[in-house]
């Protein structure tokens, strides 16, 4: 076999493998997109229709008209934003401390908190929030989302700080920096890619969280996943608007991930130590 042909076959084989691997994720999105653009009548058609003759843009307009979609979007933004911000404020220094003090046991404790089913926190916390009179505000959801976001941030930051070269901090120590200055002026700027990763994952997990919202949210404090769920009613399931809503809910996270990807890849430590 000639070499160019062999190379081509190699590439084709690779492409097929990649396609096979990503197809579950891709097809699922494609089908959702298709659903969101079809009229109800096309949804049940057999054989199934992927690209309809007429596009049902109405599906998209109805979600913004009928429900308080913008309110729920705002709720989601506040809950995810606040939960992520708090998580970064607490988790980044915590991850640094754990990494530097090699406090692996406390890291495990945090891991256990993450592994415990969220529902087991819910009931006592629900009672607590009721007692505090916080139900009906967004606070219960913000606070309980910390159960998800804080461990993620801490664990990612531990891993990141453990890989940053110790010599840099020793150099800063000799240069006259205090512990806090070393953290703020040396460790933190170098950990920027790690913080970006922690931020994105925290946003994704918080944004997509459903269980906490369904229990703790009232009509006015629903977040988007709960709002989408509420579009399923007993009488009928309107697949078109549902798929459209689901896509709109996913979109911000999707955009965020794509936009920040480069940040993650750009290793900032290049040139810090030997080599390069």
């Amino acid at each position: 076999m000639s070499r160019p042909l062999r190379k081509l076959l190699d590439k084709a084989g690779m492409a097929v493998c990649v396609l096979l691997l990503v197809s579950p994720a891709l097809l699922f999105f494609l089908w959702m997109l298709s659903l969101s653009l079809k009229f109800e009548i096309d949804n049940g058609a057999y054989p199934p229709i992927l690209i309809p003759d007429r596009f049902a843009w109405k599906n998209y307009t109805t979600i913004f008209e009928g429900n308080s979609f913008l309110l729920y979007f705002w709720n989601s933004l506040i809950v995810t934003g606040a939960a992520t911000l708090f998580a970064l404020l607490v988790g980044v220094p915590a991850g640094y401390g754990i990494a530097r003090m090699r406090a692996h046991k406390s890291a495990v404790v945090i891991m256990i908190a993450r592994m415990t089913p969220g529902l087991s926190f819910l009931i006592p916390l629900f009672l607590l929030f009721q007692w505090l009179g916080l139900l009906g505000t967004l606070w219960p959801q913000i606070i309980i989302h910390l159960v998800v976001t804080v461990p993620i941030v801490i664990w990612i930051m531990i891993g990141y700080f453990e890989t940053t070269p110790m010599e840099l901090e020793e150099a800063a120590m000799v240069d006259g920096a205090t512990r806090w200055q070393i953290f703020a002026k040396v460790a933190l700027p170098i950990a920027k890619p790690g913080i970006v990763v922690a931020f994105i994952l925290s946003v994704i997990f918080s944004w997509n969280n459903f269980v906490f919202g369904i229990v703790l949210a009232s009509r006015e404090t629903r977040t988007l996943p709960v709002a989408v769920y509420n579009m399923l009613s007993f009488e009928q399931v309107s697949w078109g608007p549902l798929a459209a809503a689901a896509l709109v809910v996913t979109l911000p996270v999707l955009i965020l991930t794509v936009a920040a990807q480069r940040q993650i890849v750009a290793g900032l430590t290049a040139g810090a130590v030997k080599g390069g």
Binding site: L168, E170, G176, I190
Partner: peptide
């Protein structure tokens, strides 16, 4: 006495320059 109060300067094997 902590390093910052010893008034010494150190050059490390891998330079330890602040990359940012």
């Amino acid at each position: 006495v902590p390093p910052k109060d010893r008034d010494i300067a150190m050059v490390f094997q891998n330079y330890a320059l602040y990359p940012h």
